[in-house]
């Protein structure tokens, strides 16, 4: 075991993993995290806690992780390199481990131009690839970036993101391969709506043998409405929402759109379960955590394995 996290045990045990996501609130109220935790408890193996996603100020990911642990859930600390230099990054990794965090997701982070503080200065001392290298070096070599020894090293299960739908399309699998070379253990993909295109990506991944070296979790986000589908299609960079998905959402009455969105998510999970090289799903129900239980139930993912 690299970290001994629940997520690691599920994946190495050959089980189809399910991870969830929790966006901390834009305030200091811990109860909001606790409410989200209540919806996800027993439904997923580990819960990502986002790190100021879309560059909007929120309760810190590490604080969110700690609250989840107090609620009996296993967190996955998301960390972006946008807001921290290598000093702060390594310090936060030490602190997270000391508090009991065992999974990390290494990200570059949305540019602050999109967020609520566009006048801020960004950091980008490291990029996401170098963050992976850093966490691995701390864990496996017991050393900081500067090669100084860490007496009591943090042992994290290392995650990263992959977007199969960004450009250049033919480079996406190669870049995933780079993340594997950098030391990543598991990968969570961007939300998948175009399964045919995702299948092509996975074919390339398998041809390169990458799926043998890393656990790939397919990203699934249920859509609440046609409005959300159009927003994802047109305004979220690197997102591929095919016309037929939009039409399917449009094809049902307004009050049934949420149900249809969940049906699409469940079907996506079922296809992912059959896909070679896919080790699990990452269910990102954005501000919709209360619907996660029915999604995982309908997708036949319950009960979660006790490992």
């Amino acid at each position: 075991m690299k970290s001994g996290s629940q997520l690691e045990k599920v994946l190495t045990g050959g089980h189809f993993a399910v991870t969830g996501e929790c966006g901390p609130p834009r305030n200091a109220n811990p109860d909001i995290v606790r409410q989200k935790a209540a919806h996800l408890r027993g439904m997923v193996d580990s819960v990502n806690v986002t790190d100021n996603q879309t560059a909007v100020v929120r309760m810190s990911s590490l604080a969110g992780c700690l609250i989840l642990m107090q609620e009996g859930l296993e967190p996955n600390l998301q960390m972006v390199v946008r807001d921290r230099n290598r000093i702060a990054i390594q310090s936060d990794i030490l602190g997270a481990y000391a508090l009991g965090v065992r999974n990390m997701l290494c990200l570059s982070g949305d540019h602050q131009k999109f967020g609520d503080h566009p006048s801020s200065k960004n950091v980008f001392d490291l990029d996401s690839m170098q963050l992976i290298q850093t966490v691995k070096k701390m864990r496996d070599d017991g050393k900081f970036i500067n090669d100084q020894e860490i007496e009591f090293p943090p042992k994290m299960f290392i995650g990263a993101a992959a977007n199969p739908f960004a450009d250049p399309a033919e480079f996406r699998a190669v870049r995933l391969g780079k993340k594997v070379a950098a030391g990543v253990d598991f990968v969570q993909t961007q939300c998948i709506y175009n399964l045919d295109r995702f299948e092509k990506f996975m074919q390339q991944v398998r041809d390169m043998g990458i799926d043998e070296k890393v656990y790939i979790l397919g990203g699934v986000t249920p859509m609440k409405s046609v409005g959300m589908a159009n927003y994802m299609k047109n305004l979220v960079p690197g997102m591929d929402v095919p016309e037929e998905v939009i039409n399917r959402m449009k094809g049902v009455g307004k009050k049934d759109q949420a149900k249809e969105g969940i049906a699409i998510a469940v079907e996506t999970i079922q296809r992912l379960k059959e896909m070679k090289g896919i080790a699990g799903v990452h269910v990102m129900a954005i501000e919709w955590e209360e619907r996660v239980p029915e999604i995982v139930e309908m997708a036949g993912l319950l009960p979660r394995p006790q490992v």
């Binding site: 946008r82 690839m129 250049p168 690197g238």
Partner: peptide, 26 residues
């Protein structure tokens, strides 16, 4: 690169443009 990435492109590269603006080349 808007994020000064040394191991790009990030997931925001779309049709040759940067995620921050369609006016900015990736």
């Amino acid at each position: 690169c808007s994020k000064s990435l040394l191991n790009g492109p990030c997931g925001g590269s779309s049709k040759g443009k940067c995620e921050i603006s369609k006016e900015v080349d990736c």
